[in-house]
Design a protein around this nucleic acid. Structure first.
Length: 300
DNA sequence: CATACGTGGAT
DNA sequence: TATCCAAGTAT
């Protein structure tokens, strides 16, 4: 859950998740729709499927793997997570390299290469390995990450409060604030989109993203106009903004009268009772669109 | 190996 | 409002 996600955002999800799936047996047996529902809103949904796949692997293995290579081989576990689990759970001497560590080591060694370049990352990885206190890898790793999160912060680093400031090459050269060097920013695209709210007898028309969808597979969505060419958009209900990686979507939500046209047939389309919306994994866009209507006339 | 993947909080 | 980026991974 913590992969690219702030601790504060994770905590409520973590608590609910552990309550519902207290063991890897429970997680391994979970229904996919329920699992996605537990993860809905947290983002990076492949993590949920990978975590379940890992749980099923543990069922097969008969327990949690205790060696770095076996941990690293679990689905969704990369170098960072493998090192974090190996060091924190099992005391194995592997240095974690997350965003915090990259920044701390870049400043500590006055690394001037672009942070996204593989060669730079490799140098910083080596620096992190050399820096590791192999006698206490758990405390060391957490300490370096915490240093990055609280003192050696991206902007306005608090060098005066830093316990390793006397040995910091970036500080000595007055570069701490400029490091790490980041590459050119990615282009953000703005896109206008529409969502349709089609109601019939207390049910709302939704479609489900197919299993092979690149994004949000398995989640339920409101239809867009091109999916319902016969439908005539009616009242514009409201607008909201939603960003997904390098896109900023401006959504406008329209109500549509269910009338003489028919919605597409098939597994992917369903009339969902409004009262049952909580039981399926709704995409965040659908959730935002419907939340904006909650006080409106639609559901009264 | 550059890029896509989600979302929201901080600045 | 715009930008950054978070206890990264898979492809």
């Amino acid at each position: 859950m913590l992969q690219q996600t702030r601790v504060a955002a994770v905590i409520p999800y973590y608590d609910r998740f552990l309550e519902r799936y207290p063991s890897y047996d429970a997680l391994a047996a979970a229904e996919e729709q329920e699992l996605l529902g537990m993860w809905a809103g947290l983002g990076y949904y492949s993590r949920a499927r990978n975590l379940q796949a890992a749980a099923r692997e543990m069922v097969r293995l008969g327990g949690f793997p205790r060696e770095y290579a076996a941990i690293r081989a679990l689905p969704g576990v990369g170098e960072y997570t493998a090192a974090a689990v190996a060091s924190i759970a099992f005391g194995l001497p592997h240095a974690v390299v997350d965003g915090n560590v990259l920044r701390v080591m870049a400043r500590f060694g006055a690394e001037g290469g672009e942070i996204t370049a593989a060669a730079t990352k490799n140098r910083l990885r080596e620096a992190a390995d050399a820096f590791l206190d192999a006698a206490e890898p758990s405390r060391h790793n957490q300490a370096v990450m915490e240093l990055g999160a609280t003192v050696c912060t991206p902007k306005d680093p608090q060098c005066g409060r830093c316990p390793i400031e006397p040995w910091c090459e970036g500080r000595a050269r007055g570069l701490a604030r400029e490091l790490p060097v980041k590459s050119s920013k990615t282009v953000i695209r703005r896109v206008e989109r529409s969502l349709l709210v089609v109601m019939r007898n207390g049910h709302i028309l939704l479609w489900q993203r197919p299993p092979d969808a690149v994004i949000l597979s398995g989640f339920w969505e409101l239809p867009e106009p091109h999916q319902l060419p016969k439908a005539k958009p009616g009242v514009a209900l409201h607008r909201f903004k939603h960003s997904i990686t390098n896109h900023i979507y401006q959504f406008e939500v329209f109500s549509v009268a269910a009338g003489k046209w028919s919605p597409p047939e098939g597994e992917l389309w369903r009339w969902v009772p409004v009262a049952g919306l909580a039981e399926i994994p709704l995409s965040t866009t659908a959730r935002k669109a419907l939340a904006g209507l909650a006080q409106g006339k639609l559901f009264q």
